[in-house]
């Protein structure tokens, strides 16, 4: 029985899955997207980013895609940059994680912890 590395799903891995939900991105793009979607709260460093990517790749939640040209501004760098895409499994996992959080949120609301300006 192989050990499940992503159970529970670390927040960095979840953020990466979310960042890839809209478009395929390379490492630096993921980092910037995560920064944007968390309001600057999370800036993934290289160690965290690439070890998370490695795990997600191994678990088949994301896949690598080859792109010859990223954009007209820096074609040299772009050629060797790897891009990542969310797989169906990855999308499913992200959705179930979001559901779990939503459940949690409901509980928090019911317990009157989550309300007003105190959040």
């Amino acid at each position: 029985m192989p050990k499940r590395k992503l159970d529970p799903l670390p927040s960095a891995a979840f953020q990466i899955l979310l960042s890839l939900a809209g478009e395929d991105l390379h490492g630096y793009g993921i980092m910037r997207q995560v920064e944007a979607q968390t309001g600057g709260r999370i800036r993934l460093g290289p160690g965290t980013l690439y070890s998370s990517l490695q795990t997600l790749l191994e678990e088949g939640l994301i896949e690598e895609i080859k792109r010859e040209i990223d954009g007209p501004d820096d074609p040299v760098d772009a050629r060797r940059r790897r891009h990542y895409r969310l797989t169906t499994g990855g999308r499913k996992l992200a959705r179930s994680e979001a559901d779990r959080l939503a459940d949690l949120l409901r509980v928090a609301r019911a317990r009157k912890i989550y309300k007003g300006e105190y959040v």
Partner: peptide, 15 residues
Amino acid sequence: FRAAWGEEAIDLYRQ
């Protein structure tokens, strides 16, 4: 880990 990601990590730092 370095072999797999070293180049990308340095690239990310550079950007």
